[in-house]
Design a protein around this nucleic acid. Structure first.
Lengths: 359, 359
DNA sequence: AACAATTATGGGACCGATATCATCGAAAAG
DNA sequence: CTTTTCGATGATATCGGTCCCATAATTGTT
């Protein structure tokens, strides 16, 4: 017969000069005696293929050790299966938890997370974003509300869903799933005031120069605003050191603060890590918590539950935040691709433990 | 004239039916009046292009807001620019540090890290690996030495450089950059013995059933081996709870251990996090460290420096490990692609602080 | 029994870049 | 002044999948 079937044609076809040598879908189709399309369907849409055919294909795949090339698939289908996630740093349990939760949520949908760290640096953020965009992510998750104009422009031009998390920006670019950092500060201040304190301080990052951790700074501002509202002095609010803030920061900062304002009765730390560092430093200085000094933190890190006394803190459900983000992503990438941008406030709560004097 | 230049041909060419609408290299080439190849070169190999031409291309790129599509580039060049990194979890400062260090090292070479978490689960590891392989990473970094046979087979078939880190496997698959977890345990035991302790215990994960954290288990074994070598009893070595181990684990485990072996003088915790949890629990129980109980941990986590007393621990330079891995990767993906597998032991050291009684 | 609808599969173009080889003019060599 | 070399650029095939439409086989409809 003069007709040459597709399978026949493929059987003749050799791998081209630029091939890698790894088995391709063509090799599978030849071995199984079906067309490439059938192999493709057997993999990604099995119910479209007859069980018997499916079986043949499965055998060929196993025999060859074939692993599909998603690079090629992405190019053709214009679906990369990538979600870009931009974080200040991974070296922070809460951000790591977000990444973790997101990965979890996206795992079954066969998405991959592309993570970039900005190190609290806006120039770096733009560079990273450009690199990320080259991978054609199907959605972008950004942490923190403040971006450079250039970054915002890139984001807009990307023409994919954008989710801003861990903040409640006033002029959001896309979807928002977060909480108010300003409100965190205010809540901390109100709590300390309610417990009867009047000489109240705070420790957070950035002395002078550019602000790196805008979310932390927002918490400081909220704290100051609430103090002023209550007619209290914000003199003992100390900005010191640069993000990322950790234990050492708290230890150093509390020393400076108590030197400057020895009569301080209560302190808010913009991060639990700082708070724990401060607590340990107080132990060393013989300052008793909460008898001589009340301490409240933010983030509800695991370590805060463990120290003595257990740390009172402001809790935000980062797990929930990660899960909500994952669910939103899945919805956005599924049917309602252009649902109008939503705004979710996951809220916050005070976790009362024993590092604050009882009223 | 009858000739139609390439630029002319492109000027005529419209975007095909499957195009995304985002500007492509063709759009840039048309606007700049050069061929696509010239645009490609202007971007990735500028010195091959005349400055004047380069300029034209740069203008066109800026005007269109063109961002190259690395998916297409990857397919064509068979270089994806991906490095796969498989970790037990990201929720561990040391692993996060490795990821961080690696990202840093690869940033300028324009590589992206594809991170997968196994959650200390070998079935999950295989599934993740398969997904990762579909992205055609140019190298694979694996944590921990124990893989399922299927995973090992996949790894071998992938035909890319493989680096196993954070362990020193006896039968490695590829390059190794790590340290001996067994030796960590032995060193801890020797240290406690040298300080004059004779009733020595340890806390780590896994009661019965399958071992999840093989590296942690290796440390426990090394510890036991050294005790036996010294003719001491390993009765107070307690396995309890499942990886990932954190503060709570230590708090719970130390309680059980002291209940079972009240005369225990010294304890090794397979993780600093457990150690700190144990320390805080001891504070609560009125057990003084190091007077009544000596404590040594592993990992040299930041929190260990901050607590009172500061925690004696075994340090491994995970930063160095990450950097070494990055450097090896760059070398492997640069010139000597098939350098014979190397084996680097980054070693370990005891960080003497104050949680162990002085001899 | 004739025709429409449905199911299973195949053929070929296409996604957006780069590898590779060809071309062409200018500079260097003889 | 011719020949060779080199530098800049262009034309085309190709990477490995999937989209889209065509076709053949099967089932359902009246």
């Amino acid at each position: 017969m003069g007709l040459i079937s597709m399978a026949e044609a493929d059987r003749v076809k050799k791998a081209g000069p630029r091939s890698t040598g790894r088995p391709t879908i063509r090799d599978v189709s030849q071995l199984a005696g079906v067309s490439r399309m059938t192999v493709s369907r057997a993999i990604s849409d099995p119910e479209l293929v007859l069980p018997a055919t499916r079986e043949k294909v499965a055998k060929a795949i196993a025999a060859l050790g074939y692993v599909p090339d998603r690079t090629a698939g992405s190019l053709s289908s214009r679906k990369t299966g990538f979600i870009a996630l931009m974080l200040p740093t991974l070296t922070n349990a809460n951000f790591a938890a977000v990444a973790h939760g997101l990965t979890e949520a996206l795992r079954d949908a066969n998405f991959h997370l592309l993570i970039a760290y900005t190190e609290y640096d806006m120039v770096e953020e733009e560079r990273q974003l450009r690199n990320l965009l080259a991978r054609r992510p199907e959605a972008i998750v950004m942490t923190g509300a403040t971006h450079s104009p250039a970054a915002s422009k890139l984001l807009l031009a990307a023409d994919v869903p954008i989710i801003e998390i861990a903040d409640l920006p006033s002029r959001p670019i896309g979807h928002v799933i977060g909480f108010s950092n300003h409100e965190v500060g205010r809540t901390a201040a109100r709590y300390l005031i309610d417990k009867g304190h009047t000489r109240i301080g705070a420790i957070g990052g950035t002395v002078e120069g550019e602000v790196r951790d805008h979310r932390g700074e927002e918490r400081m501002r909220g704290f100051e605003d609430e103090l002023r509202l209550a007619g209290l002095s914000a003199d003992a609010v100390l900005r010191y050191g640069e993000a990322p803030l950790s234990y050492d920061h708290g230890a150093a900062a509390i020393g400076r603060l108590l030197e400057k304002s020895p009569d301080c009765q209560a302190v808010f730390a913009v991060s639990d890590l700082s708070a724990v560092g401060a607590m340990m430093q107080c132990q060393r200085m013989g300052v008793s918590i909460p008898d001589q000094l009340s301490l409240i933190g933010f983030g509800d890190f695991e370590i805060g539950r463990i120290v003595n006394p257990p740390l009172t803190t402001i809790h935000v459900d980062f797990n929930e935040l990660g899960r909500r983000t994952g669910a939103t992503l899945l919805a956005l990438l599924g049917e309602d691709g252009n649902a109008r941008p939503g705004r979710v406030d996951v809220g916050l709560s005070v976790v009362e433990r024993e590092s604050v004097r009882k009223a």
